[in-house]
Amino acid sequence: MRPFLSYPRIPDTVELEIVSVSVDGRDLPYSQISRTEKTVALHQTGRGDWDLATLHLKAVLPDQEIADGPWSDVVCLAVLSENSTNVRSTARLAKGRDGTWQGKIELVRGRHLRRAVLSLAVVGEVNGVPGRAIGKSEAPWYLDLKESTPRRQREIKIVEADFREASEEWLRGFKDSAWVVATVEDPEIPIVYLNTSGVEGLVEVLNGTSGSAAEKVLRDTTTSQIAQDAWIAMFHTAVSNLDQDDDGTPIMPTGWQEPVLKMMLPDVLPGRQLTDALREINECRTSGAGWAELQTNIQFAAGKRSQIAKKLTGAVRTVDREERSEP
């Protein structure tokens, strides 16, 4: 729920837009700025390292309502931050002649690692208290330092590799596996490794789009199985390191863990508020009580995401058809 405050906030949400970005004085192609995804991809392939990105910003506030309301000394503040580098920098926007608020904020390359977050805070004096947060932008913008395509949610990475000769040392230990799921290898996103030398020909079948009925059955059931492994592993990782409120209520994590939990929790513990479900899971996990029973539910939730039942039904029907058509 939204926190209940002792003073009024401005009624509408405010809109923040990154109008353009210049990187070391050169404008970033607009195709790397996505307004729908609210994401900017700062990495430019084929271009060397850079030092400074200047983000040109525009915000739209409900000015009339603010003027009519109890707020005064209103400041429109852009906030650029990244948790992993503990950086927070701010810039004030100024009201332009066209009624929008405009300004710029600098992103120093050396102060950011992967993904900076840009949000907008509207601040003002209310009931005699100055510096109150009275409004903010709905969803923040992401500034991706490592990507050249502006995508908000990074997809789960799928890497095809020969485990025997993998550059990742640890993979070699799994040379006989057909696939492994790595959820902590890259803190940003889980990776599914497919072993090109584990089961000969399997990766080719997985990558195919046509082929015989048998091939399709193999492809469908295998991808389902891999996906189920991945969802189970992701779920466990996501609940394994939860920050907690004072009373032990776990806090919904950020990053890829958040969508994973939000997608799976309703199936793992149906009928519970997300925070309540998360608390239950965390308690089972840390105390051990009920943890084993919960595995069934986790498996069910992962199976649902992986469309196990659907894919297997299709497979059974196919096999059945094949058998009947045997002479």
Binding site: V159, E160, L194, V203, L206, R305
Partner: peptide, 8 residues
């Protein structure tokens, strides 16, 4: 990676 897997 395989499209069928990406989808899931």
């Amino acid at each position: 990676g395989p499209a069928a897997l990406r989808e899931l």
